[in-house]
Design a protein around this nucleic acid. Structure first.
Length: 147
DNA sequence: GCCAACGTTGGC
DNA sequence: GCCAACGTTGGC
């Protein structure tokens, strides 16, 4: 899951009293569907810093809730407000993401150079999704290098 | 700041 | 339903 560290970094997550944050603001259907259909509570999440001097994996987190409606879609003053959404039929959902640990930065060039990660959607040309799936095998490769 | 890639919008 | 125009993402 990508986050701009200037908005919310792994350190920010670690510093929260609950060490959890609702992953609000996802407004892409594919990314939403990954949260809704592909994630389960307890799943490992790689916390990726994007749009920053050194993009890469900065920590490990965990899916800490079932999917539920993203409250910002109903807030007229929010930049994430969606007038086409309704509480009866919410369009956007989020999950809670819980801090597990900070890791060394596994930067994008290292990810690209690591055997076994070539097929990761995150690394595919043109990928812009803020949430992409990681296979169990890919996760094991990454975790072994972050140990 | 540039630009490739891709999603969304809206006219028809 | 098509598709051009436009907006956004995000690495560099």
């Amino acid at each position: 899951m990508k986050s701009e560290p200037s908005v919310q970094s792994i350190d920010d997550l670690a510093a929260m009293p609950s060490q959890k944050v609702g992953w609000f603001g996802v407004r892409n259907y594919l990314a939403r569907n990954y949260m809704r259909d592909q994630m389960a509570e307890g799943d490992t999440v790689f916390f990726y810093h994007s749009s920053c001097p050194q993009p890469g994996i900065a920590g490990i987190a965990r899916v800490a809730s079932l999917p539920y409606p993203d409250p910002t879609q109903f807030e007229p003053d929010s930049e994430y407000f969606d007038p086409k959404s309704s509480s009866e039929n919410p369009r956007w959902i989020q999950v809670e993401v819980g801090f597990v640990r900070k890791t060394r930065l596994m930067a994008l060039p290292e990810l690209r150079a690591t055997p076994g990660l070539e097929a990761m959607p995150l690394l595919q040309k043109g990928n812009r999704l803020s949430i992409t799936p990681v296979s169990a095998e890919e996760a094991a490769v990454i975790l072994s290098l972050l140990a």
